[in-house]
């Protein structure tokens, strides 16, 4: 298993601002659509089906 739950995000506050600012002017529906795309992009980066399964379980 390579999925990590330990802190790994570079500059957490910078990341969080980037993420929320990207949706600041979006409607709820547009933000949800963007989140779906974002999940798929990041899932591709993770790659491993076992890791993705683990992530899905953790997020449930």
């Amino acid at each position: 298993m390579s999925l990590t739950f330990e802190p790994n995000i570079e500059s957490p506050d910078d990341f969080y601002e980037l993420l929320t600012d990207a949706q600041r002017d979006l409607s709820d529906e547009d933000a949800n659509d963007m989140n779906a795309r974002l999940v798929l992009i990041l899932a591709n980066q993770v790659g491993s089906l076992a890791d993705l399964k683990m992530a899905i379980e953790a997020a449930k």
Partner: peptide, 25 residues
């Protein structure tokens, strides 16, 4: 400030208890 931002905030808080990566957020 909006629904999307609140959703992320709540996601971070609900993950923070079990997932250490969420705590710095």
């Amino acid at each position: 400030k909006n629904g999307a931002s609140k959703r992320f905030r709540n996601a971070v808080l609900s993950l923070a208890k079990t997932a250490p990566f969420a705590r710095p957020l």
